[in-house]
Simulated assay, not measured.
Amino acid sequence: MNHLTFKQFELTRSWFIESAESVPRGIASVQPEGFSNTIHWHIGHVLTASEQLMFGFHHKKFHLPAVYTKLFERGTSPADWGGDVPPVDELITQLKDQWDRIQQIPAKQLNENLEEPFIGLETFGELAGFAIVHEAIHMGKIEEMKRVIELGGARN
C-alpha cells in the first residue's frame, strides 16, 4: 500500500485493537440500552467487513470461517446467534493476523479499478480508504458502548 494509506490503516487498526483489548470481557456481550448490537459483535463485524473489503472484492479470497458472515455481517444481531461464536480474544488475534496480510498488499494495487463500483467507490485504494473509515466508526461505537455499560445503562 502507499505510505499514506498504509499509515492511516496502521493507526486505525492499532487503535481499534487497543480499544478492543481494553474491554473487560464481562461486558463485551452486554447490549446497552439504545444499541442494536454488542461490543463483541462490533469487533467481529470490523474483522469480517475488512476481510470482505480488502480481500473479497478484489482478490476473491476470504481467509475467515464462512460462518463469520452469518454472525457479523451488516444487519445481523447477537440475538440471533446460536452455536459456536468465536470469543473476543480469538477475534482480536484474527484482527492482528489480518493486519499482517493487509500489509502485504502491493502499493500498485491501490490504483486498480474494481470489477464493478461498490457504493460509488471505483478503485481498490478507495475501497481501502472506506475500510479505514468504517473501522474508525466502529471503534467509536465500542468506546460509546463501554462508557454506557460502565455507567449502568445496559441490559443483557
Rank of each mutant, 00 (worst) to 15 (best):
L4I: 07
L4P: 03
T5F: 11
T5V: 11
Q8C: 15
F9T: 03
E10F: 03
L11Q: 02
T12L: 01
S14G: 01
S19A: 09
S19V: 03
S19R: 02
E21Y: 01
S22E: 13
R25T: 05
R25Y: 10
G26N: 10
G26E: 11
I27K: 08
I27Y: 09
A28Q: 14
V30G: 02
P32G: 01
G34V: 10
F35P: 02
S36F: 07
S36L: 14
N37T: 08
T38R: 04
I39W: 06
H40F: 15
W41V: 00
I43Q: 03
T48F: 03
T48N: 04
S50Y: 02
E51W: 11
M54H: 02
F55R: 02
F57H: 04
F57E: 09
H58G: 06
H58N: 00
H59T: 01
H59K: 10
H59W: 13
K61S: 09
F62E: 00
H63S: 11
A66L: 13
A66E: 15
L71W: 03
L71M: 14
E73Y: 15
E73G: 14
A79H: 15
D80W: 01
V85D: 00
P86M: 06
V88S: 06
D89T: 00
D89E: 04
E90N: 06
L91M: 13
Q94C: 01
L95H: 12
Q98R: 08
Q98I: 03
W99G: 00
W99R: 03
D100N: 15
R101Q: 12
Q103R: 14
Q103M: 10
Q103F: 00
Q109N: 11
L110V: 08
L110A: 06
N111W: 12
N113G: 13
N113M: 15
P117I: 13
P117Y: 12
P117Q: 14
I119G: 01
G120Y: 14
G120K: 12
G120P: 13
L121Q: 12
L121D: 05
E122C: 05
T123M: 14
F124I: 01
G125Y: 13
L127C: 11
L127A: 11
H134N: 08
H134E: 07
A136S: 08
I137G: 06
I137H: 09
I137P: 00
M139C: 05
G140S: 15
I142N: 00
I142R: 03
E143T: 13
E144N: 09
E144S: 08
K146Y: 12
V148I: 12
E150C: 10
L151R: 11
A154M: 05
A154G: 13
R155Q: 11
